[in-house]
Design a protein around this nucleic acid. Structure first.
Lengths: 188, 188
DNA sequence: GAAAATAGATAGACTTGTCTATATATTATT
DNA sequence: AATAATATATAGACAAGTCTATCTATTTTC
């Protein structure tokens, strides 16, 4: 039940390097050196580099949503919660120096026919959409919106994705701020 | 003035491989083998692999906008042109088996501190925004829109970016179709 | 004849993964 | 409580192959 401290250290270091340098540009040698563990220990916990990638994606997803829950906790109004999701992304992009979305980065880097990794990336997006949908269900519409609720879901999702990509490309939080403003108007 | 046929062939093969497999996962050996040219010829035209990457990005941008011009040529109404931009992306994603945006892929793969590549990626996005803005300027507003024109520009841009990313992640054109529908409503 | 192409050897660093041998720490058995 | 067994850590050599880039020597093309 107790997680190995070694395993945790490997995953932490590998996660940082995968995100900052890319999966393909990060070698096993650098991971074991920076994690200060033996080569055999790494292969004991993760039989291959690909297994390490899988663990990285899954762990990142959990951390991402846990961080989101924490971030939205003090907010009560569902509409404000939805808007704060943009603030969460701004916060994270600032901290990571606009490194972009973990999952899109992996999706862009792995070969197109690598089903395994793609499924994991899709899983995060599905979960995000479910998250938005749940909050949207709690919003009490003040006026007959020009845009249906299921379409509003799509719009918010696409705005978040697009704004994160753009913010990362420009290394600037402006696109995310723009997206937030647009969402504010659409939510009425 | 006449472009070397060898240079063209190198760039074409490298472009295909960079896009399909990723820049880091594509080796010089594979390029010269598939292009059927000598190793020295490659380094004669492109002093380093990085130079080949630069040429790839710039060439892709030109091809992308030339293809867009061609695609929109038969359409006259600026509003229909704007909507057809989504169709163009659908068309391209279908052809490339949802390989995603060339430029975001590179942005995701190169190290965050590689200024050179990032500037080129930004250049494509700036050009895209300018393109949208020019079309938006020609649209005659039928009614006082709920959303300002400069904000409409941001929205359309972010929708395109987000939908392309999502379509690539899901390997499905639905997000792009959704984005088109949303744009149709927002354009009135 | 000059320029540009070719094949291919070579350098040197790096890649993932396997392996051995040793040390330490926890757990099970007597 | 003392001993035996198991698990997990370590360092580091090693294999087999990849990578980018340079170089030489020969042939083709303009």
């Amino acid at each position: 039940m107790k997680e190995s401290v070694i395993r945790t250290r490997i995953l932490e270091v590998a996660s940082r390097l995968f995100y900052e340098q890319g999966y393909n540009s990060t070698g096993i040698n650098q991971i074991i050196q920076e994690a200060e563990i033996a080569r055999g220990s790494l292969y004991n916990h993760f039989p291959s580099k690909r297994d390490l990638l899988t663990a990285y994606i899954q762990n990142s997803e959990n951390l991402w949503f846990m961080g989101l829950d924490e971030f939205l906790k003090p907010i009560e109004d569902p509409k404000q919660k939805l808007l704060a999701m943009f603030d969460y992304r701004i916060d994270r992009q600032l901290r990571s120096k606009f490194g972009g979305c973990h999952f899109n980065k992996i999706g862009a880097e792995v070969s197109g026919d690598d089903l395994d990794a793609f499924v994991l990336v899709q899983h995060q997006k599905d979960r995000l959409k479910t998250y938005i949908m749940a909050l949207l269900g709690l919003v009490t519409p003040v006026q007959p919106a020009a845009i249906g609720k299921e379409m509003l879901l799509d719009t918010l999702f696409l705005l978040m994705e697009g704004a994160t990509v753009a913010a990362s490309a420009y290394k600037d939080s402006q696109p995310l701020k723009d997206a937030r403003k647009i969402a504010e108007i659409l939510l009425g």
